[in-house]
Amino acid sequence: MQPAKVIKEIQVGIADYKVAAAPDRLITLGLGSCVGLTLYDPRIKVGGLLHIMLPDSTQFRNVSKPAKYADLGIPLMIKELERRGAAASRLQAKLAGGAQMFSGKDDKFILNIGQRNVDMTRKILKAMGIKITAEEVGGNRGRTMILDLANGMVTIRTIGSPIKEI
């Protein structure tokens, strides 16, 4: 009898991405204004999870970590997925996060960054011809996002609400 393969849960930190294959899972904890993007190739059951912090790297002088930005991180993860045998044309995208976490008024705080992260992520995916199959974005709650590479299902955990699958 063959022992069951241990399913690994691989954690993705902020401004980082990871690529893995079935039966493992990818998880990122506590998305606020950040956007979690999963890309999944159902044919070969390979996928990636990117934790985006900011929309646009061109607005910064020092870009030390490309995965921090939607415009650089998404192409980077796609390249890595292709290296693992995925085809960009088969990739299914799911988005979570982009919330507005803070209540109160302060014009100098950048409070709409969540929405901007979502907009930029959609824009880049569209430009690259990748379809978004599900979204759980906006609102004012933090989210944890888990991609099951066995079937491409994404689980969303929030405080005070039942677990949701998208």
């Binding site: 606020g32 900011l54 705080f109 933090g142 405080i159």
Partner: peptide, 26 residues
Amino acid sequence: TVPILAYDMLGAVLSTSLIAGGYIEE
């Protein structure tokens, strides 16, 4: 300035507050 407040997951709250303040460096 006047404080703003969030009550939620630590990761979501802290990352968002630092990004909102423009502290995104390593």
